[in-house]
Simulated assay, not measured.
Amino acid sequence: MSGAPAVRIGVDLGQGGCRALARHDGRSGHGRTPGFWSGQPAARVADAVGAALADLGPVPDGPVAVGLGMTGLNGQSPPVDDLRARLRERGLRGTLDVADDSVTAYLGALGPVPGAVVAAGTGVVVLAAAPDGRTARVDGWGAALGDRGSGHWIGRTALRLALRQRDRDRAGALLDATVAAFGPVETLPARWRERPPTPERLAGFAGTVAELARAGDPDSRSVWRRAGVLLADSAVAALRQAGLAGADVPVAGTGGVFAAADLLLPTFTRALRVGAPCARPVGAAADPLAGALALCAGPAGRTLFTGLVVHCDIEERAGKR
């Protein structure tokens, strides 16, 4: 390889979208493609990397350092062979670091320090890390089995409440919003059997539920309050598994759900203090895309998560570090 500094590329592969950020010599390039649920995640990642590099503009011939946080792993080792091949097809060489998106969410929110991070967007996953190297991952089971308190959970729960309003012949703002977003409720079951909604579509409805909650709708407010309790419950479970339930450590929330802090944080904070009184709720320093960049920046980004990151050369056989 030449002596040119590596172009750093962070990639965040979520359920609803894949974002890439390329940085070199003070310049940045951005790329975005469909997410995990669109299929062929390796292709989506490679396309996002290519788009970010194109947006970055000309750089000296040299290596790249790619850091990827991806959903859909459920604690399993990430498959990297297909991705490495697709990156090579684009003429890229250098290093590749891949981890579950909980790791990159953690690095973006807190950096390489002990604590816990609740990443709540379309889905939700919590990761806690202790000074002795123990880690604990909670939830992240996907929309059908878990993701309690996620955007998908909020959208689905609100939809169910709206249908209960319909069954009770009780008009309400939530029912009106459901009809506006999804069509007549009488034909909803048949239409959804034919074409089930994607998790991100239901998660998108959470934004409408937030607007209704801020306007004073009691059912919508109750959904967001319950989401805060569920997310705190998962954070407490992760802290306990990592041996941190009684420790003075930061707990950060990140992701689109936490953008509605006014609706979520009151119950989240109360429930967290009950389950882990010494934990300190803090704001996230940055997002998972920044965490993906930190992952490929050098060993410091991987030290806290030994065994959870696959590090390899794009041209060579992968191996864990």
Rank of each mutant, 00 (worst) to 15 (best):
G3R: 14
A4F: 04
A4V: 09
A6T: 00
A6N: 06
R8G: 07
V11P: 04
Q15Y: 12
Q15M: 13
G16F: 02
G16H: 00
G17S: 13
G17P: 08
L21C: 03
R23Q: 14
R23C: 13
R23I: 11
H24Y: 10
D25M: 01
D25I: 02
G26C: 05
R27A: 11
S28P: 01
G29E: 00
R32K: 12
R32S: 08
T33K: 12
F36G: 01
G39S: 02
A42F: 05
V45D: 02
G50W: 06
A51C: 14
L53M: 15
A54H: 12
A54G: 13
G57Y: 03
G57D: 06
P63K: 08
V64T: 10
G69H: 05
T71K: 02
L73G: 06
N74R: 15
V80Y: 03
V80M: 03
R84D: 00
A85W: 14
R86V: 02
V98S: 01
V98L: 05
A99K: 13
A109R: 02
L110C: 09
P112L: 13
P114K: 13
G115Y: 02
G121Q: 04
T122V: 11
T122E: 07
V125W: 00
V126M: 10
G142F: 02
A144S: 15
A144M: 15
A144T: 15
A144H: 15
G146W: 09
G146R: 12
G149L: 06
S150V: 08
G151Y: 07
W153T: 00
I154V: 04
R160K: 12
L163C: 06
Q165W: 01
R166Y: 08
R168N: 01
D169K: 13
A171L: 12
G172P: 01
A173E: 03
D176F: 14
T178P: 02
G183I: 06
P184K: 09
V185Q: 07
W192H: 08
W192T: 10
P197H: 00
P197V: 01
T198H: 12
T198D: 09
E200H: 14
E200K: 13
R201T: 09
R201F: 05
L202E: 01
A206G: 04
D219P: 11
S220M: 06
R225V: 04
G228L: 07
L231Q: 14
D233V: 05
L239S: 04
R240S: 03
A247Y: 10
P250M: 09
G256D: 07
V257W: 10
A260P: 07
D262A: 15
L263C: 10
L263Y: 06
L263K: 08
P266V: 00
T267V: 04
F268P: 03
R273C: 13
A279C: 10
G283M: 02
A285L: 11
D287S: 14
D287C: 11
D287T: 08
L289G: 07
G291Q: 05
A292W: 08
L293Y: 07
L295M: 11
L295C: 09
A297S: 12
A297H: 07
G301F: 02
R302Y: 05
L304Y: 04
D313N: 14
I314M: 15
E315G: 14
E316Y: 14
A318D: 08
R321Q: 14
